[in-house]
């Protein structure tokens, strides 16, 4: 019994930090651009398969492959911003459908060129092996990923609280029109946020790629978690997102180790979110602003 509690707690922290990485970007886009990036799933697929393309198909060194992938991803983000989001900011239905289509395209392209049999494996392990925490064995890579999750989030928070650009982003998330009058270049900030939000996902995917399985449809599963976290956290509030990540992490860990039925994970999380929405329709956060 004690072991179960211990395992649950450890995995709550681990999964919570990972989910934080996964959902930070989604939450930010919700909070700043006030849209749903339902194409968010493409980021996960693109990270893995673009790296694999440069690393394996073009036989470049891993570091070069990762750098090229980041650059390409940033370019794709900018293209999506100008192609869809900036053009249809007033027509939500077109944005949502278009972004979903992009995720589907990424999914299909990856599936066409690297189907699940292609055995994609990125050697991004920093320290191999596993370590015994209490009575549970945990891959060190996961611990590093969780630590990175906390670090990246802390950096984001610092960035938003301490820098000039961060202040501008927060201003936009409070009130778009007023910030325009105050001379903030909204278009640039939007684009900047679009590019910024790919970073946590890239970190998360590179960290967990060697540990957990990758396949072309994995993006949907992560986006599912990101949606739950950001709905629970109040659509774009970072504070709410942090709390919600750990709550969802706890629910997942609870379903996996206490109920001992990992297949119930997402169902349990959704039920928790729906119950919470009925009690507190605006999410955990006090406001819909960024912090």
């Amino acid at each position: 019994m004690l072991t179960t509690i211990e395992t649950t707690l450890i995995y709550t922290v681990l999964l919570g930090s990972l989910y934080l990485l996964v959902s930070l970007g989604f939450s930010l886009i919700c909070g700043v651009l006030r849209i749903f990036h339902l194409g968010y799933a493409y980021l996960f697929v693109a990270t893995i398969y673009l790296t694999w393309f440069f690393y394996h198909t073009l036989s470049l060194p891993l570091a070069v492959a990762i750098i090229l992938m980041v650059i390409l991803q940033a370019l794709i983000s900018i293209a999506i911003y100008y192609g869809i989001i900036a053009r249809y900011l007033k027509q939500e239905e077109i944005i949502i459908t278009g972004l979903l289509l992009i995720a589907l395209i990424a999914d299909q392209v990856a599936n066409r060129f690297y189907p699940i049999q292609a055995a994609v494996y990125l050697p991004t392990t920093i320290i191999p092996g596993s370590i015994a925490v209490g009575s549970t064995n945990i891959a060190i890579q996961l611990i590093i990923a969780a630590a990175l999750g906390i670090i990246v989030t802390a950096l984001f928070v610092l960035f938003f609280l301490k820098t000039k650009t961060g202040l501008a982003v927060r201003a936009i998330s409070y009130d778009l029109n007023t910030s325009k009058i105050m001379g903030i270049r909204v278009e640039q900030i939007y684009m900047f946020v679009m590019v910024l939000t790919i970073l946590p996902v890239i970190v998360a995917m590179l960290m967990i790629a060697p540990v957990w399985a990758v396949d072309p449809t994995m993006g949907w599963g992560y986006m599912y978690t990101a949606i739950l976290v950001s709905v629970m956290g109040g659509l774009g509030n970072i504070r709410g997102t942090i709390i919600a990540s750990y709550i969802i992490g706890f629910v997942h860990a609870f379903a996996s180790f206490v109920v001992a039925e990992p297949r119930l994970m997402n169902l349990a999380a959704l039920i928790v979110v729906v119950i919470m929405l009925i009690i507190r329709p605006q999410g955990i956060a006090k406001t819909e602003s960024l912090w």
Partner: peptide, 12 residues
């Protein structure tokens, strides 16, 4: 919220 929740129900 409605959009997101309805998106999730079929997946559940």
């Amino acid at each position: 919220y409605y959009t997101l929740l309805t998106l999730l129900f079929p997946l559940v």
